[in-house]
Computed example of a mutant assay.
Amino acid sequence: MVENLEPKQAWQLLQTDPSAVLIDVRTKMEHSYVGHPIGAVHIPWKENPDWQVNPAFVEQVAEAVPDKNAPVLLLCRSGQRSLDAAAALAAAGYSRPINILEGFEGPLDDDKHRGNRGGWRFHDLPWEQS
């Protein structure tokens, strides 16, 4: 089963549970150029140019998070890819995959821009650009 947390709740969990790991499932370009949470492990769920699911995703997560009982928080742009990735981890036996609602950039606003209605950056949580 996949748990969902708001960005501030996810940040709080990361601060209070040393076993918790944050995984950024966005593409390499998004991670590098749009920015990413400080300390996030980058393991893409899908990648350009074909946008196919990364066949090694679960294996790569297992390398970063060998304890299947640890909270694994997953973040994408707006919360959909991370939800799919969390479901894959649940199916692989992870007991606490957590989708971060709103993602890094949040939902689109009326002008079809992100970052104005939610997301990791919107909530002023720690992030950086490469």
Rank of each mutant, 00 (worst) to 15 (best):
Q80A: 11
V58Q: 04
P66F: 12
R77M: 05
A62C: 04
L83E: 03
Q60G: 00
S82F: 00
V41A: 09
G35Q: 10
L101V: 10
R96G: 11
L73S: 03
D24K: 10
V21T: 15
S19C: 02
N48A: 14
H42Q: 13
V72H: 05
P71D: 03
E59S: 14
A40V: 07
G39M: 09
I23N: 06
V65P: 14
P66L: 14
V65K: 03
Q52W: 00
N48R: 15
L108I: 11
Q52K: 13
W51L: 15
R26I: 01
N54R: 06
I38W: 07
P18K: 13
E63I: 15
L22W: 07
S32V: 07
V53K: 04
G93R: 01
S95K: 15
D17P: 13
T16K: 13
K68M: 11
V21F: 10
Q52L: 08
I38Y: 02
V34Q: 14
A87Y: 02
D24T: 07
A20N: 03
P37G: 13
R96H: 12
N54G: 13
G93S: 06
R77Q: 13
P37F: 13
P66G: 10
P71Q: 06
D109C: 13
A40C: 10
G103A: 10
L89M: 07
Y94A: 13
P55F: 09
A64E: 03
L101R: 14
K46A: 09
I98E: 11
L73A: 08
A88M: 07
H36R: 09
G103H: 06
K68F: 14
G35E: 09
E47D: 15
V53F: 05
G35S: 06
L75D: 00
G39P: 05
V58H: 06
P18L: 06
F104G: 01
K68L: 07
A92E: 11
